[in-house]
Each structure stands twice: as structure tokens, then as C-alpha cells.
């Protein structure tokens, strides 16, 4: 075995640093989401009759927006919506994409060809067009947003897991399982799947970051969550025009929260990637 040098040891320490800092940032975001009602006295869609576009200070920590809703409260409550949608969507994408990739990669043959060509067609459509189509077919709403984002991201997992499964199925332990008389499902579930998920574990957190930006983008275009719901992308969209008038507080706080969350996911993902690159078998035991 090639001995990992001091660079490798440094690499592992660097990876741990990334993972810890990413986790801390995300933990703060989750905390904000969980404690949102406790941290602010206003409801996220509660309108303060006393004033719209009030500057920060006084009753409203971060002021109010054009509808007279409390920005601080909305920013905190939006964490629930954004994190929830993104995690649900990526989980769905992983589930669906991995299953598809596993079957295509392990069984191969015409089924593989068929599934992959369908994915090609699917991926040929620009994401926002597809979001429009889905929105038109299923209507708007949070659930549909989850489905759209999941659909957009699933093909990547399908390809990733397919490539892994194709190489894993050639390994001796898979053959050992087949010769032991195990059925295809048992082989897939017990041997091929667990050994094909390593890259997924690395990509999924990174993907959460991208998904969050996708969600913000969709919301910015008006394809996001229904109107009064607090959501960072929608808030930025709403407050964008205020910036010109010098009213920064309606769009900058949601922007910073969005930035921090994406950064948290990225740090975590990069850290896992770094660890996978430098670590030996010890790191492959992370999670199941």
C-alpha cells in the first residue's frame, strides 16, 4: 500500500476543517428555522398596520418590506421553507436517480440503453422550461416545487450510480454473491448499492447548495412558492427594486442567509470530497 505522506495527513486535517465549518453553518441555519417563532415576535406573514418599508430598528429588527411584513421574522421562517424544500428535493432525487442508475448499470443491455436515452431526452430541456411545464401541468405549490427540483437533479445521480454500479458489478465479491445463489435483488441491495453510493454521499451536500440556488432562481422568476409564503428567493425578488431606492434591508438579509446556507452545503460537500480523496478504508465506513 502506498504510504500517505505528510500531505495526506494535512489533507485529512483540512477536510475535517471543511466538514466542521460547513456543519456549523448549517446547524445555525437549522437552528434559525427551528426557533423562528421564538426569535421574533412577528409572524412571517403578519402585516404591521403601522407601516410598510420601515427601516431597521424599533419594533422591527430588520425593518419591514413593501407589504409591511417583518423582514427578520420572514428571513428566519424562510429557512424552514428553503431547507425543507431543498433537502426533500435532493433526497427524492437521490432515491429516484440511484434506483434508476443501479438498475441500468447492473443489468445493462437494452434496458440500460433505453433508460439512458430517456434521460438524454429529459436533460435536453432547459431546467426553467421544464419547471414551467411542470408548473403548468401540476400547478404551483411547494410539493410541485420539490418535484421539479428533484427531477432536475435526479439524472445526475442516475448517471453517477450507473457508472459506479457498472464497475462494482465486475468486482469479485459481486460474482461471489451470485455464485452463492443470491437473487438479483439481494445482490443489488446487499452488495452493489452500498458500494455504489460513495460518490453520492459526496455530491449530495454540494447538490443541496445548487438546489438552493435553483429554488431561489425559480422563486425570483415567480415560479416559486405561493406568494405570501416567506422564501429567500422570493424575498430577494420582491426587494430588488427597493435597493435602488436605498432600502437595502428588504433584500440583503435574505441574500446573506441564502449565501450562508449555500456556503455551508458547499463546505460540507468539499470536505467530504477531500476526505474521500485522501482517506483510506477508514473513511469509506462513514454512514451507510
Amino acid at each position: 500500500m502506498a504510504a500517505p505522506g505528510p500531505g495526506a495527513g494535512g489533507g485529512r486535517r483540512f477536510a475535517t476543517g471543511l466538514i466542521v465549518s460547513g456543519s456549523v453553518v448549517l446547524a445555525l441555519a437549522v437552528l434559525a428555522a427551528a426557533l423562528a417563532p421564538l426569535l421574533s415576535q412577528w409572524g412571517p406573514t403578519e402585516i404591521d398596520p403601522a407601516g410598510t418599508l420601515a427601516p431597521p430598528g424599533g419594533d422591527h429588527l430588520l425593518g419591514t418590506d413593501v407589504n409591511g411584513m417583518d423582514v427578520w421574522s420572514r428571513v428566519l421562517h424562510a429557512a424552514r421553507v428553503d431547507l425543507g424544500i431543498v433537502v426533500a428535493a435532493v433526497a427524492l432525487a437521490v432515491l429516484f436517480g440511484s434506483a434508476l442508475g443501479l438498475v441500468a448499470g447492473y443489468l445493462g443491455g437494452w434496458l440500460d440503453d433505453l433508460l439512458m436515452r430517456l434521460l438524454d431526452i429529459f436533460q435536453a430541456f432547459p431546467m426553467f422550461i421544464m419547471a414551467l411545464v411542470v408548473a403548468a401541468l401540476l400547478g404551483g405549490g411547494t410539493i410541485n416545487l420539490v418535484i421539479v427540483i428533484a427531477l432536475v437533479n435526479a439524472p445526475a445521480y442516475a448517471r453517477l450510480v450507473r457508472a459506479e454500479a457498472r464497475s462494482v458489478r465486475e468486482l469479485p465479491f459481486v460474482e461471489a454473491s451470485v455464485t452463492s445463489g443470491s437473487g438479483t435483488l439481494a445482490v443489488l441491495w446487499r452488495h452493489v448499492l452500498p458500494n455504489s453510493l460513495t460518490p453520492v454521499r459526496v455530491i449530495a451536500p454540494l447538490n443541496c447548495g445548487w438546489a438552493m440556488l435553483t429554488l431561489a432562481g425559480l422563486s425570483f422568476l415567480g415560479l416559486g412558492v405561493p406568494v405570501p409564503t416567506a422564501e429567500w428567493g422570493a424575498m430577494i425578488s420582491l426587494g430588488a427594486s427597493d435597493v435602488v431606492a436605498g432600502r437595502w434591508w428588504t433584500s440583503v438579509p435574505p441574500g446573506l442567509f441564502l449565501l450562508a446556507s449555500v456556503l455551508g452545503f458547499s463546505l460540507l460537500g468539499e470536505g467530504l470530497q477531500e476526505r474521500a480523496a485522501t482517506g483510506g478504508p477508514a473513511s469509506s465506513g462513514v454512514g451507510r
Partner: peptide, 27 residues
């Protein structure tokens, strides 16, 4: 039954020795 050339490679990295030996019985 087959005994493989590469002893470590013929065992799934994520399964224990007990699991590996029991596989034909489970099947």
C-alpha cells in the same frame, strides 16, 4: 462454489465476515 484469486476483493467491503460466510445459507 468458487474460491477466488483475490481474497480481499471477493468480500464486499461493507459486509462483515459473518455476513459473507452466511450468504449462501441466506440464499
Amino acid at each position: 462454489q468458487l474460491v477466488f484469486q483475490d481474497p480481499i476483493g471477493s468480500l464486499s467491503p461493507r459486509r462483515t465476515a459473518a455476513d459473507a460466510i452466511a450468504e449462501p445459507l441466506r440464499a
